[in-house]
Design a protein around this nucleic acid. Structure first.
Lengths: 127, 127
DNA sequence: ACCTTTGTACTATTATATTAGTACAATAGG
DNA sequence: CCTATTGTACTAATATAATAGTACAAAGGT
C-alpha cells in the first residue's frame, strides 16, 4: 500500500483540512510510520495539484502539534505515533462514529441490518 | 423528535455547509416532511447563534436545488422528498459509507468486529 | 567552498465566509 | 387600507483560504 489521497476542490471542506486528514489517516492506518519521510512541500503540491503554500501550512500546523518533524534542507518526517486515548475518550469516539453512521444510513435509506450485513461480508471475506 | 441541530464554529466545515447538512438530514430522516415549515431566516439565525445572512444563503441554495420552497411573507417550506437514487447509485453510496467507516475505525484503533458488535447491540436493543 | 534541496517567510492578489446593518417586496391578517 | 412578518437584495467590513511569486536559511553532497 502506498501513501496517497486525493483532493476534492469542490468540497466544502477546505483543501488544507483534506491534506491534514490524509496525512493523519496515513499515520493512523500504519501506511505512514514513525521516521517515514513525507513528500517535500513542492512535491506534494504537484502531486495533489494544489499550491505549495497550502502544503507548507499543513506541515507547519502538524509540526506544531508534534505529529511531524521537519529538518531544514532534508525533509519532513513522521515524528510520533498518536498517543493512545483514554478508555473514556475511546468510548466517546465509538459513540460518535456510531451516531454518524446511523444518521448517514438513515439519510440514504439503508437499514441497519443491511449495513451490518455489508460489514459482515467484508469480515468473512477478509479473514 | 424535534428539528434541531448544532453548529460547531470551530469546525473546518463552513457554517453554511453545516446548516445545509442539518436540513438535509432532517428531511432524509423524516423529521422534516413535505410541506413542513422551517424556522424563519431570522429565527433560525437566533437559534443557531449565527448571522441571518448565512441562513438566508442556505435557504436560497436549497431553494435553487428544489429541496425548499419559499413563499415571501409566509415562510420557507420543505418542497419535495429527495428523489430515489438508482440501484447503481445506492450501491455506490453504500460502498462509500463502508469505506469511510473502515478508514475511520482503523484510524481510531477500533476493530471491525468490535464495531459490528456495537451495531448489533443497537439492533437487538431497539427492535 | 559550492551547489542543490528543503522548509520557511514574506508580499500580493483573488475568492469565499461571516457578520452587521439597511431597505424593499410580497403576503397574511386585522 | 394598514401593519407586521418573511424572504430577498443590497453595501460594508473583517477574516480565512488559496494561489503565485520571490527570497532566505539550514542541511547534505560533491
Amino acid at each position: 500500500m502506498e501513501f496517497s489521497f486525493s483532493i476534492d476542490a469542490a468540497s466544502a471542506l477546505p483543501i488544507y483540512a483534506q491534506v491534514e486528514r490524509g496525512i493523519r489517516q496515513g499515520v493512523a492506518t500504519g501506511i505512514l510510520r514513525v521516521g517515514d519521510q513525507l513528500p517535500t512541500v513542492r512535491e506534494l503540491a504537484v502531486m495533489l495539484r494544489i499550491n505549495a503554500n497550502t502544503v507548507a501550512k499543513v506541515y507547519r500546523d502538524l509540526e506544531r502539534v508534534g505529529l511531524l518533524e521537519t529538518r531544514r534542507g532534508v525533509g519532513t518526517f513522521i515524528a510520533v505515533r498518536e498517543k493512545k486515548p483514554t478508555k473514556r475518550e475511546r468510548e466517546r469516539r465509538i459513540a460518535e462514529i456510531r451516531a454518524d453512521l446511523l444518521a448517514r444510513i438513515q439519510m440514504e435509506g439503508i437499514s441497519l441490518l443491511e449495513m451490518i450485513e455489508e460489514l459482515n461480508s467484508i469480515h468473512t471475506n477478509t479473514k
